[in-house]
Design a binder for these strands. Structure first.
Length: 863
RNA sequence: GCCGGGGUGGCGGAACUGGUAGACGCGCCGGAUUCAAAAUCCGGUUCUCGAAAGAGAGUGCGGGUUCGAUUCCCGCCCCCGGCACCA
């Protein structure tokens, strides 16, 4: 055994052992309880970053811990390999997206292996592999047959200069990132999955997911946004198709004083053709990004179309406007506006001098002025100025008006969702081809099973101007499967959220000649899913949705894909910059900066290491290329070893909080491992340990042994229940500190030291598995650390005979008393009141009450 | 703008169910070891006053409930994540 801790050597040896022993190759085993631990698969961007390291270390710690609890653990890994960055790299460097992606995967796989994660690599999934994506193509054709898929138009960001559709991140301040042209909102035909058919099930299912964070469930509930309202027609004063709108506030219908339609609504399009000023206005408001954020922040603008509608209750003529905040694709493309009782409608009415009419007011009759500001409350209201519907509360008015509209045949009650159907079409090359053939006579025909997969050509030139799928006539032209005539393939590809919606199921049966086989039901649902909080809504909703689609095609039996979810926070680092006249702002990498401190350790200045010039510190920000503050995990592994990186990553913060990266903390983690290593070396060099261990310990020994068993209980709880790995590590460090303070060398003391060290090594196995592997055999133990059971708590070691209690006077700490563990309350009270400092603070006062909290404190209330 | 989360020493964080605020680590200060330095080891370290004992203040800001609030309630400020084509 090496005298010095040599992580490189220890880690190579441990990894070699796991490799040759096949430690992480798992198969279905009826004898052990299965445990499926899943981490979100990475996009192969080129290099592992700290966010990956954090995510995958959490997963590996949980996996190894559960294995020590006797479970048969499946922990797989794969690649979310389709996506925009490959296209961007191709434009920038002239490499084909496929080649770039495969090279990145090879590099990142090696990086993951160096970290010592216990993956079953035989199950690796790569989503850009036709052997993978053929099954989602087949699924799509099944869903089409089941009418879960449809084609409709939807709005996209259109760059009029580059003549291309832009992703939201490619729109900067309303302009195309490369052309700089003002982006237009344009409608194009796209494929949709009917996720709204599952809206109620997705919503109700959240109530049966106790293992998911409340924050995620709340965000999903709000995203689905179920509402009960009324859909109704407003007749046009001069005839024609009535305007259909949805409202959750039929009680305020008397207050509807105008209507607004989207720029692409048929009424607007008709007006555009006849009126050049409306045409100019529509051109103007069609500009800008499609995101909800952009729409909400928009300055609300509109123009009257010169058409009136009729309020169905009052019969009043109200004007129809076209407005930039109404979108055609959402709802009916038209809204009724009640400025008296809606903030946005009110602002718009004031801006354009439109009528504001009160329809409801406070039930207690207190005065409000809706001209000055809207009154939006839904509770404790009464309808006013509402004809036959006057004097009702919200519920009564809602139902009376809904009944009336239904009786008139101009409206009906409707449950509505904020959730929209999932548009899966992308106008991109590097994605899974949508298996559809467009035939002039048969329409959109699904590709038959025998012709699947529709393979994406991989050796292509990609310039970013036009998708290679569109420019390749050989790929595009094909015979119609239905009539045999000339037809064309669909050239759009799937949203990459499609691939990441079912990869977890594929891991269970990676070689199945179907999307999944019966092995999926052995492992699913996932016991623990781990990934970034940024996926709280979209990915995690599609993931749940797709599982239900698979269930309804009898591919899986469970209703939900994962029972427990852990969302980890971002990884942040300090960033530094210098501004200069010539080169503008220059971001300096943190390792190129030296900080200076005052005598109390406060940072005074930060300087560049090379020329000593001062730099500006921004504080904690997310690691990013643009700020040049990324920390490369691999170089840290080179310097300190994977165990140190794993230990620090888990120690620096609880998993669900942002992690603020500091290199000095990494050194602290490394120092702890070196210390533990030398404690073990010292112990084994002192010779063989007497066995069986004697339990005749002195007081200090009994205290250490109590600490040991308290620690085993705490660490098991912290890792297994609370997922607070940082406090688990702190407890292990405390125990190590107490062990080094214990200097007895009697045979029973050395036996105790052996017991403590064995437990320390096993408790650290999930976190620093390589070091544990080496130290476990150094301690003379058979078998590998990875295969050991979690240490058991000896309850008899936990017994205490005396306790220290805190004594407060009026809530302020005034003394401490030591009492017998089984002391009666009256005895504790007496002892507390007898404390010297307590007397000092109570002697001029009258004692009113003495509160005794067993095992914790005594509070004397006096005045 | 809307939805969700967060704010505690010089720094990362701990305090799990309303009960000792600051565990553990970093940094800093002092000491040991060393020819010297690094490494290592030992001690101290919320702030203010005090030689000390101890006292006062203190968990983003303002209020409230309670014997007792970092924890619960109301209002506000700031930071982070998401907002449907980044993944």
């Amino acid at each position: 055994m090496n005298k010095q801790y040599d992580p490189a050597q220890i880690e190579t040896q441990a990894q070699h052992y796991w490799d040759t022993a096949g430690s992480f190759a798992v198969s279905e085993d009826s004898a052990r309880e299965p445990y499926y631990c899943l981490s979100m698969l990475p996009y192969p961007s080129g290099k592992l970053h700290m966010g990956h390291v954090r995510n995958y270390t959490i997963g590996d710690v949980i996996s190894r811990f559960q294995r020590m609890q006797g479970r048969n653990v499946l922990q797989p890994m794969g690649w979310d390999a389709f996506g925009l960055p490959a296209e961007n790299a191709a434009i920038k460097r002239g490499v084909a997206p496929a080649k770039w992606t495969y090279e990145n995967i090879d590099h990142m796989r090696r990086q993951l292996q160096r970290m010592g994660y216990g993956y079953d690599w035989r199950r690796e999934v790569t989503t850009c592999d036709p052997a993978y994506y053929r099954w989602e193509q087949q699924m799509f054709t099944r869903l089409l047959a089941k009418k879960r898929v449809y084609r409709a138009s939807a709005v996209v960001n259109w760059d009029p200069v580059d003549q291309t559709v832009l992703a939201n991140e490619q729109v900067v301040d309303g302009r195309g990132w490369r052309s700089g042209a003002l982006v237009e909102r344009r409608e194009i035909p796209q494929w949709f999955l009917r996720i709204t058919d599952y809206a109620d099930e997705l919503l109700d299912g959240l109530d049966h997911l106790p293992g998911w964070p409340d924050a995620v469930k709340t965000m999903q509930r709000n995203w689905i946004g179920r509402s009960e309202g009324v859909e109704l027609d407003f007749a046009l004063a001069d005839g024609g198709e009535p305007l259909r709108v949805y409202t959750t506030r039929p009680d305020t219908l008397y207050g509807a004083t105008y209507m607004a339609v989207a720029a692409d609504h048929p009424l607007a399009l008709a007006a555009e053709a006849n009126d050049p000023s409306i045409a100019a206005f529509l051109t103007q408001i069609r500009q800008g990004a499609v995101t909800e954020e952009a729409m909400e922040k928009l300055e609300k603008k509109g123009m009257p179309l010169g058409i009136d509608a009729l309020n169905p209750l009052s019969g009043e003529r109200i004007p129809v406007w076209v407005a930039n905040f109404v979108l055609m694709g959402y709802g009916t493309g038209a809204i009724m506006a009640v400025p008296a009782h809606d903030q946005r409608d009110h602002e718009f009415a004031q801006r354009y001098g439109l009528a504001i009419r009160q329809a409801v007011g406070p039930a207690d009759g207190s005065a409000i002025d809706v001209q000055a500001q809207p009154w939006v409350a839904k509770d404790d209201l009464v309808t006013v100025n509402a004809g036959q519907f006057t004097g009702l509360d919200f519920n009564a008015a809602f139902h009376a008006i809904a009944d009336y509209l239904e009786a008139q045949g101009i409206g009906e009650r409707r449950v509505n969702y904020r959730l929209r159907d999932w548009g899966v079409s992308r106008q991109r090359y590097w994605g899974c081809p949508i298996p559809i053939i467009h035939c002039p006579s048969c329409g959109a025909v699904p590709v038959p099973d025998k012709d699947l997969p529709v393979t994406l050509p991989e050796s292509v030139e990609f310039t970013g101007v036009r998708s290679p799928l569109k420019s390749d006539p050989h790929w595009r032209h094909v015979a119609c499967p239905s009539c045999g005539g000339e037809a064309e393939r669909e050239t759009d590809t799937f949203d990459t959220f499609v691939e990441s919606s079912w990869y977890y199921a594929r891991y269970c049966s990676p070689d199945a000649q179907a999307m999944v086989d019966e092995r999926a039901n052995h492992w699913l649902p996932v016991d623990q899913y781990i990934g970034g909080i940024e996926h709280a809504v979209m990915h995690l909703l599609y993931f749940r949705f797709w599982h239900k689609l698979m269930r309804d095609l009898a591919l899986v039996k469970s209703d939900e894909p994962a029972t427990n979810l852990l969302c980890q926070g971002m990884v942040l680092a300090e960033a530094y910059y210098q501004d200069s006249e010539q080169s503008g702002r220059e971001w300096i990498a943190p390792d190129q900066v030296r900080v200076e401190r005052d005598a109390k350790g406060r940072i005074t200045t930060a300087r560049r290491r090379d020329d000593q010039t001062e730099v500006v510190a921004t504080g904690w920000t997310t690691m990013s290329k643009s700020k040049n503050n990324g920390v490369d995990p691999e170089s840290l592994v080179d310097r300190f070893g994977a165990d140190t990186v794993r230990l620090f990553t888990m120690f620096a913060a609880p998993p669900d909080q942002a992690l603020e990266w500091q290199d000095s903390g990494v050194e602290g983690a490394s120092r702890f491992l070196r210390r533990l290593y030398s404690v073990v070396i010292e112990h084994i060099e002192a010779g063989t340990v007497p066995a069986p261990r004697e339990q005749s310990l002195d007081q200090a020994g009994a205290a250490l042994r109590r600490k040991l068993h308290e620690t085993i209980a705490k660490v098991g709880d912290d890792i297994g229940r609370r997922y607070t790995f940082n406090t688990a590590i702190a407890a292990v460090m405390e125990l190590t500190n107490e062990l080094t303070r214990y200097s007895e060398s009697t045979p029973s003391a050395r036996g105790l030291r052996q017991e403590v060290l064995e437990a320390l090594v096993l408790m650290l196995q999930p976190i620093t598995p390589h070091l544990s592997h080496a130290l476990w055999s150094a301690l003379g133990q058979d078998g590998a650390a990875v295969d050991q059971a979690w240490p058991t708590v000896d309850e008899s070691a936990l017994v205490r005979d005396a306790l220290e209690l805190v004594v407060q006077v009026n809530g302020k700490l005034r003394g401490r008393i030591t009492v017998a563990a089984d002391a009666a309350e009256s005895a504790i009270r007496e002892q507390a009141l007898a404390d010297e400092n307590v007397i000092r603070f109570t002697e001029s006062l009258t004692i009113r009450k003495v509160i005794v909290v067993p095992g914790r404190l005594v509070n004397v209330v006096a005045n």
